[in-house]
């Protein structure tokens, strides 16, 4: 039986269809589930919090959705081992709930406005991220250690900020920083454009200690087919670099 994934839709989410297509392309089943439905979330194997502007980013990105009762249910299910992937706005929501990094039961990180020498606010481009290796999680089983993948970003508030320096050290020690911005050769220079938003330690994605929840700013669902990758558009239906993240979820849930 195929794993069954719920793609969560909050008011203002706008990447739910792409996320569901990527889930199905990786060989899983899935369904878009509205934030206010009474569905039994426990019947799903995993959840995707897709990108967009939930609640119009009012007050700050992700905070209103983070306080929605639905996120308490997802938090509980994640603690029971269900897979949760938060992409872009979903990443911001996971950070604002404290599910990521999840070391303590409180908000420990933030996705702050980008720092970019040329563009203020929203920034959209293709970047490289690398699988930081060392830790096998639900999201990188199909990636080689230090494998570089090309993937798009599209956000105004994607700069990972961790006020507590000891926490950053702990996340590095725990191998929770599984994706980092890098150049095409995998070098993680902390400089624009390699680091496109000024994230501390070039962080592109952080998982929880158990490796079943990931918050990442880049959009793997927008790189699920080669035809989506600039310069490779003639390769039509071949799997794109982002597909491996969804295939990893499938592998993990086998």
């Amino acid at each position: 039986m195929k794993p069954n994934i719920a793609v969560i839709l909050f008011p203002g989410t706008n990447c739910e269809n792409e996320a569901l297509r990527a889930v199905k392309a990786a060989g899983m089943d899935g369904k878009i589930v509205r934030w206010n439905s009474n569905e039994n979330l426990g019947s799903y194997d995993g959840f995707i919090l897709p990108g967009g502007w939930s609640y119009e980013d009012r007050i700050r990105a992700g905070i209103i959705a983070a306080l929605d009762p639905l996120m308490n249910k997802i938090k509980k299910l994640s603690q029971e081992g269900k897979v949760v992937l938060g992409v872009c706005n979903g990443c911001q929501i996971l950070a604002e709930t404290g599910i990521i990094p999840g070391i303590e039961d409180k908000v420990q990180i933030a996705l702050a406005p980008n720092i970019n020498p040329f563009v203020s606010g929203f920034y959209c481009t293709w970047v490289n991220i690398k699988n930081n290796g060392k830790k096998k999680t639900a999201f990188n089983l199909k990636l080689k250690d230090n494998e570089v993948i090309r993937i798009p970003i599209a956000h105004g508030e994607g700069r990972f900020v961790i006020k507590d320096k000891l926490l950053l050290k702990e996340l590095i020690k725990n191998n929770q920083i599984i994706f980092r911005y890098c150049d095409a050769d995998g070098k993680t220079e902390d400089k624009f454009p390699v680091n496109p938003n000024g994230s501390v330690y070039n962080i592109a994605g952080i998982c929880n200690k158990e490796g079943n929840v990931l918050a990442m700013m880049p959009h793997p669902e927008r790189a699920s087919w080669m035809r989506q990758v600039p310069g490779r558009n003639n390769e039509d239906e071949k799997p794109g670099p982002g597909r491996k993240i969804f295939e990893s979820i499938k592998e993990y849930l086998k």
């Binding site: 007050i59 700050r60 905070i63 306080l67 908000v107 990180i109 900020v161 961790i162």
Partner: peptide, 10 residues
């Protein structure tokens, strides 16, 4: 603390 600011950058 709960809603209006995130102490990590504000």
């Amino acid at each position: 603390k709960k809603l209006l600011y995130n102490e990590n950058y504000q």
